[in-house]
Design a protein around this nucleic acid. Structure first.
Lengths: 204, 204
DNA sequence: ATTCTTTTCTAATAGGATTAGCTTTTTGGC
DNA sequence: GCCAAAAAGCTAATCCTATTAGAAAAGAAT
C-alpha cells in the first residue's frame, strides 16, 4: 500500500492523456487507474467519478486552450491576430484531440461559476480581436458565434475524418481563414446599409 | 417466446429514437431491447453489436438528412437555395439531435462502399448549390469544406449548449447564413485577383 | 509515542455487452 | 397436411466497468 501521492490535478492530467491517446469516448476510470498505478476505487479520493472526471478534463482543457489562443494573439491585431489565433486553435485541436473533445461539454448550470468563467476566456480572446475590426455593437455576439462555429466546425470535421478527399486540409483551412478575414472586412457598417440588395435578414 | 417480428431496420429505428431522446452517448443495447420488447441478446440476430448499431444509426441518419437537404433545395437556386438548405440543416439537427450526432461518425475504410456513398449525398447537395455561384474550379473542395464546417460548427455548438448568452440563436444563425451568402458572392474570381492586398495565402 | 486524518486497498454490488447453446416459431419443399 | 431446416427468440454464463462500504496502512500532528 505504498502511497503514490496522487492529487486531483495529477488524476486529471492522466485522464487527459487517455483522452488524447485513446479518444474522449474511451476515457475510463480503469484506464486512468492503470496509468496512475493505483486501484480503480482509489481514484474516488481525488475525483467524484467518471462523469466528474470528464468535466475536470474539459475545464483543464478550456484553461489550456485559452492560454494558447491568448499567447497567439500577443503582439498582433486585426487580420494578423485572427490568422494566428485560428491556426493556434486548429493546432491545439490536432495535437490534443481528446482534450479538445472534452472541452465541448459546456459547463452545466449546477457547476461552480469558476468553471463557466474558464470556458469564457477563449471567447474573450476572440472578442478582443474582433474589437480591432470596428464592427457595430449589435453584431458582436452574432459575429463571435459565427467565428466560433466556423473554427469549431472545420476542426471537428477534420478530427472526425470528415474530409475524405485527398486534397490538402491545410490548404482548405488557409482558405477558410482568409474567408473569415474578408467577411469581417466587408461586414456591413452603419454607413453602407445597401449591402443587402435582396430584402433578406441582413447581417447585423 | 412470441415473436416480435424485429428487423434490422426496426432495431435501428428504435436505436435512433433512443439517441434523439437520451443522447447519442447514452445509446445502449439495453435501452433498445427494452423499447423493442425483447431481451438484449435477441438484438444480435439483427445487428452486429453496439458499435455496429451506432454506425447503422449514423448511416440511416446520413440518408435521411441528405433527403431533407435535397428537398429543401428543390425549385431553388443560388442564395435562395443556400438559405433553404442551411435552415433545413439546422432544423434537422435540432429535431433529431441524436441522429445528427450519430452521423458525425465518418464511415471507416473497412465499411462497405455503399455507406460512404450515403454520406456523400449531402455533400453533393451542397456542391450542386455552389455550382450556381460560378466559383473557380480549384476552389470547389475548399468551399465545400468551409460551408460544411460553418454549418456543422454552429449547429454543434448550439446543440451542446455552447451559446450561453440570452441573445437569440435563431437571429445569429440568420446572420451566419447571410455571411455565407455574401462570402460566396464576393469570392475571388479569376478576373479580380487584387482582392488580396496583403500578400497572404489567398482564397483559392 | 499516540492519535487522527488521509490514502490506498479489498470485497461486494450493479449494470451493460457479448457468446453459447437451447427452444420455439415460421417457412419451404414434398 | 407433414417434416426438416432456418430464423428468432430465450436463459445462463462470462467479462468489464463504475460505484459504494469498510478495513488497513501511511503520514501528520500533538
Amino acid at each position: 500500500m505504498a502511497r503514490v501521492g496522487l492529487t486531483p490535478a495529477a488524476v486529471t492530467e492522466q485522464a487527459a492523456r487517455v483522452c488524447d491517446e485513446e479518444g474522449f469516448d474511451r476515457l475510463s476510470l480503469a484506464a486512468v487507474a492503470k496509468r496512475c498505478g493505483v486501484a480503480v476505487p482509489s481514484l474516488y479520493k481525488h475525483v467524484g467519478g467518471l462523469e466528474a472526471l470528464r468535466r475536470e478534463v474539459g475545464t483543464a482543457a478550456a484553461a489550456e486552450i485559452a492560454r494558447v489562443l491568448g499567447d497567439a494573439a500577443i503582439g498582433r491585431s486585426g487580420a494578423d491576430a485572427l490568422r494566428a489565433v485560428a491556426r493556434a486553435y486548429r493546432d491545439y485541436a490536432r495535437t490534443r484531440p481528446g482534450r479538445y473533445a472534452a472541452l465541448q461539454q459546456a459547463p452545466r448550470p449546477e457547476d461552480d461559476a469558476g468553471a463557466a468563467a474558464v470556458f469564457y476566456r477563449s471567447v474573450e480572446v476572440l472578442a478582443s480581436i474582433l474589437a480591432g475590426f470596428g464592427l457595430p455593437d449589435e453584431a458582436r455576439i452574432d459575429v463571435i458565434r459565427w467565428l466560433r462555429g466556423t473554427l469549431h466546425g472545420f476542426v471537428d470535421l477534420e478530427l472526425r475524418g470528415g474530409f475524405g478527399l485527398p486534397q490538402s486540409v491545410d490548404g482548405s483551412f488557409e482558405v477558410v481563414v482568409e474567408a473569415l478575414v474578408q467577411t469581417l472586412r466587408n461586414w456591413p457598417r452603419a454607413e453602407d446599409p445597401e449591402q443587402e440588395p435582396d430584402g433578406s435578414a441582413g447581417l447585423g
